[in-house]
């Protein structure tokens, strides 16, 4: 029974651990992309970074399962459902990182050099966005009143996503201006979209937190 159990601080800690694994995954992902953008990509380095991304993703999966188990007797059902949805969406960030690294390795994709800086900029913004999300989730657990009364932090997450959207649109245009076959253009565009999905997913989590707060508004 909720009023007698003491699992809630453990859930908050498990959320933080999971988030740390996802952040680690995104950092390794960034290193992997940078390695793939080298003039002569080091296949061994890329392979070991891909393994690092896989390991972080596996660790995140483990924490996710632990989170769900812990929540089975914690919080009210509505809160539990919202929190599980938030942690699952956060886990999706790690899944996307793993999927993109796997695709680049297996399909030996080499994005044109003219796109590199902007792709790295997207990843950098996404990292900043994930860091803000971490603060928002921490506040949700431990400083509920502040995020309930001031939701600017959620707007900040959305504003980072808007920046990614602008770069994505610009990259989309530039890909189709390159002297490539239509097939290559579509291929690169899809890869860039996959990388931008990281930011979209984080924005979705901000929306889920907003909905959770609205449901509790007096």
């Amino acid at each position: 029974m909720l009023i007698f159990n003491n699992k809630n601080p453990k859930v908050a800690k498990c959320f933080a651990d999971h988030h740390e694994d996802v952040v680690g995954c995104l950092e390794k992902f960034e290193e992997f992309i940078k390695a793939s953008f080298a003039a002569t990509p080091d296949k061994d380095k890329m392979s070991s970074l891909k393994t690092a991304v896989d390991n972080c993703e596996n660790a995140a999966d483990g924490e996710l399962r632990h989170d769900v188990d812990l929540m089975s007797e914690s919080f009210l059902p509505a809160t539990r459902s919202s929190l599980i949805s938030i942690v699952q969406s956060t886990d999706e960030v790690a899944n996307i990182c793993q999927e993109v690294t796997r695709q680049i390795m297996l399909e030996k994709i080499a994005l044109p050099a003219s796109l590199h800086d902007d792709v790295l900029e997207i990843i950098s913004i996404t990292k900043a966005q994930l860091a803000i999300l971490y603060v928002a989730i921490e506040k949700l657990f431990n400083d509920y009143k502040s995020i309930f009364n001031d939701r600017k932090i959620l707007d900040d997450i959305r504003s980072e996503e808007s920046k990614v959207d602008s770069i994505e649109a610009m990259l989309h245009t530039r890909v189709f201006e390159l002297d490539l076959s239509l097939c290559e253009k579509i291929y690169y565009r899809d890869l860039i979209e996959d990388i931008c999905d990281l930011s979209d997913t984080i924005e979705d989590i901000a929306d889920q937190i907003q909905i959770m707060l609205i449901e509790r508004e007096a």
């Binding site: 009023i3 908050a12 914690s74 009210l76 809160t79 657990f141 009143k145």
Partner: peptide, 25 residues
């Protein structure tokens, strides 16, 4: 009752778990 709760009780809820405990109790 709701006006009093809005003024004295709800502003004291600092943790999500406290919110849930209050609702259940």
């Amino acid at each position: 009752v709701i006006k009093l709760a809005n003024k004295f009780l709800i502003p004291r809820l600092t943790r999500l778990s406290n919110y849930d405990k209050l609702v259940k109790v």
